[in-house]
Computed example of a mutant assay.
Amino acid sequence: MRLRTDIFVSALMRRVFACGDFAAVEAKGAEEAGAVFVRQVFRDGTESLHAPAPQSFFDEDDSGRRLFETRLARVGAGAVAEAIARERRFDGDLWVVSIETDDLGDLIEFAGAEPDDDGFFRR
């Protein structure tokens, strides 16, 4: 069974703050089962957008995991905002979490990624 979205987002934010970085919820969606989009903000002003991975990346026994894929990598803030606006027109129950960090480390897990020797899912 998958963890409720509001609990997942709360735990994600706590982990971000524990790393000394900053996070904010830009948009709240459905508390029980809303999709989570992660807006990664870099120090140089560029941003990346990480979205829920398609169901084809999940095994039958992966019912509780949340996997992400990178939709946009190190682009301007406007491009990320446009992509989020398009997604919100399609799904008004999605969450947007903005994280200011240069390295997501082990904060979220990427589809198809294998952890490195330190256990981080780097891209």
Score class of each variant (00 low, 15 high):
residue 26 E to W: 03
residue 109 E to Y: 02
residue 21 D to I: 10
residue 75 V to S: 13
residue 6 D to S: 09
residue 50 H to C: 11
residue 18 A to C: 02
residue 103 D to I: 08
residue 69 E to K: 03
residue 95 W to L: 07
residue 91 D to I: 03
residue 37 F to M: 14
residue 122 R to S: 08
residue 112 G to K: 09
residue 109 E to G: 00
residue 35 A to H: 09
residue 4 R to K: 14
residue 46 T to Y: 07
residue 104 L to Q: 02
residue 83 A to L: 03
residue 16 V to D: 02
residue 7 I to H: 12
residue 109 E to F: 02
residue 116 D to N: 14
residue 1 M to I: 14
residue 10 S to P: 06
residue 13 M to Q: 14
residue 28 K to V: 06
residue 80 V to Y: 05
residue 8 F to T: 03
residue 37 F to Y: 15
residue 32 E to R: 10
residue 109 E to N: 01
residue 26 E to V: 09
residue 75 V to K: 12
residue 27 A to W: 04
residue 93 D to M: 12
residue 97 V to M: 04
residue 110 F to N: 04
residue 47 E to P: 00
residue 65 R to E: 12
residue 16 V to G: 06
residue 42 F to K: 08
residue 24 A to N: 11
residue 114 E to N: 15
residue 123 R to T: 05
residue 99 I to Y: 11
residue 103 D to Y: 09
residue 113 A to Q: 10
residue 52 P to D: 02
residue 48 S to V: 00
residue 20 G to L: 04
residue 89 R to N: 11
residue 102 D to H: 00
residue 45 G to H: 07
residue 12 L to W: 08
residue 34 G to H: 08
residue 88 R to M: 12
residue 11 A to T: 12
residue 95 W to N: 11
residue 65 R to C: 09
residue 54 P to A: 01
residue 1 M to W: 10
residue 97 V to S: 03
residue 57 F to I: 01
residue 39 R to A: 04
residue 73 A to G: 08
residue 121 F to N: 05
residue 66 R to E: 07
residue 17 F to D: 11
residue 6 D to V: 04
residue 79 A to L: 00
residue 114 E to A: 15
residue 46 T to A: 12
residue 115 P to K: 07
residue 59 D to P: 07
residue 115 P to V: 04
residue 119 G to T: 14
residue 122 R to I: 09
residue 99 I to H: 13
residue 88 R to G: 06
residue 77 A to Q: 14
residue 50 H to S: 14
residue 97 V to H: 05
residue 50 H to N: 13
residue 9 V to W: 04
residue 69 E to H: 02
residue 120 F to T: 09
residue 78 G to C: 14
residue 101 T to W: 11
residue 65 R to G: 06
residue 75 V to W: 05
residue 76 G to C: 10
residue 59 D to F: 10
residue 95 W to Q: 05
residue 41 V to C: 15
residue 38 V to F: 01
residue 63 S to M: 08
residue 22 F to I: 13
residue 46 T to W: 02
residue 33 A to C: 02
residue 68 F to K: 01
residue 62 D to Q: 09
residue 38 V to L: 04
residue 89 R to L: 11
residue 121 F to Q: 02
